[in-house]
């Protein structure tokens, strides 16, 4: 009996080690419709759906983890999760420290949303989320940059008058503008920034990146991505 117990314990132990590695997907959970925490407390949105589909096609077991946007790259590097899937635009600065997959969301426009049509976006106070390409753009543009840790706060800053406008991904801002009963509106011209949204990987994780690249490729080819973009971002969103 003892031997039997020992044997089962050993089998259980070794099979635990041999079991497929779980890939941990790190997201922000505060950037609808890309990713957000739904009313059941689960990660939801475009990236949830696409991430699950990519894992299925790559034959991986995946688990979702949320992390503050500001520390999302350092925590990838220290191994708290294996993939960043958080609406992160592909830029040269980020390429230097992490690797990106092919984009799964096309290079899209960033836009200003303001509370009045004559908002001074060239020289006034403009809010943007910290460590984003939009924040970098505003810092260069001559306007005064007001940074916030979460995207939601950047919009709240416009509503309460702290900033004259918010500068963010147009696809993120659109639902807020459309559902604001005319309180918010797009002003100025759209700006094209970044090389689309991609998954972030550690530099040393080329094998994992190749698997996800293949999954993204097949989802682009069979139209799954375009259908999901249409579903989550509406007919106006740019597609592949």
């Amino acid at each position: 009996m003892k031997k039997l117990l020992l044997a089962t314990a050993l089998v259980a132990f070794s099979s635990g080690i041999a079991a497929a590695q779980t890939v941990r997907l790190g997201t922000e959970g505060a950037y609808p419709p890309f990713n957000f925490i739904d009313d059941a407390g689960q990660v939801a949105g475009f990236e949830r759906e696409m991430g699950d589909e990519m894992c299925k096609r790559a034959g991986l077991t995946c688990e979702w983890v949320t992390n503050e946007w500001d520390s999302i790259i350092p925590n990838l590097q220290s191994g708290n999760y294996d993939v960043i899937i958080a609406g992160m635009s592909i830029t040269e600065e980020r390429e230097e420290i992490i690797d990106f997959s092919a984009n799964y969301f096309p290079p899209a426009a960033s836009a200003y949303a303001a509370a009045s049509a004559d908002a001074d976006i060239a020289g006034g106070v403009v809010s943007a989320q910290v460590s984003t390409i939009q924040a970098a753009y505003i810092a260069e543009s001559g306007a005064t940059l007001l940074e916030f840790p979460t995207p939601d706060e950047t919009i709240a800053a416009v509503r309460n008058g702290e900033a004259v406008a918010v500068f963010a991904d147009k696809d993120y801002l659109r639902p807020f503008v459309e559902q604001s009963n005319g309180e918010l509106m797009f002003v100025g011209d759209d700006v094209a920034l970044g090389g689309g949204v991609g998954l972030g990987f550690r530099d040393s994780d080329d094998e994992l990146r190749a698997k996800f690249d293949a999954a993204i490729e097949s989802m682009k080819a069979d139209g799954t991505l375009n259908a999901a973009i249409e579903k989550h971002f509406g007919p106006e969103a740019k597609k592949f």
């Binding site: 419709p33 925490i37 009313d39 939601d152 706060e153 709240a156 639902p175 559902q179």
Partner: peptide, 12 residues
């Protein structure tokens, strides 16, 4: 902070 933030129609 998470619950209090503005919720669009994407939420229930």
């Amino acid at each position: 902070r998470e619950l209090g933030g503005t919720k669009t129609q994407a939420f229930a």
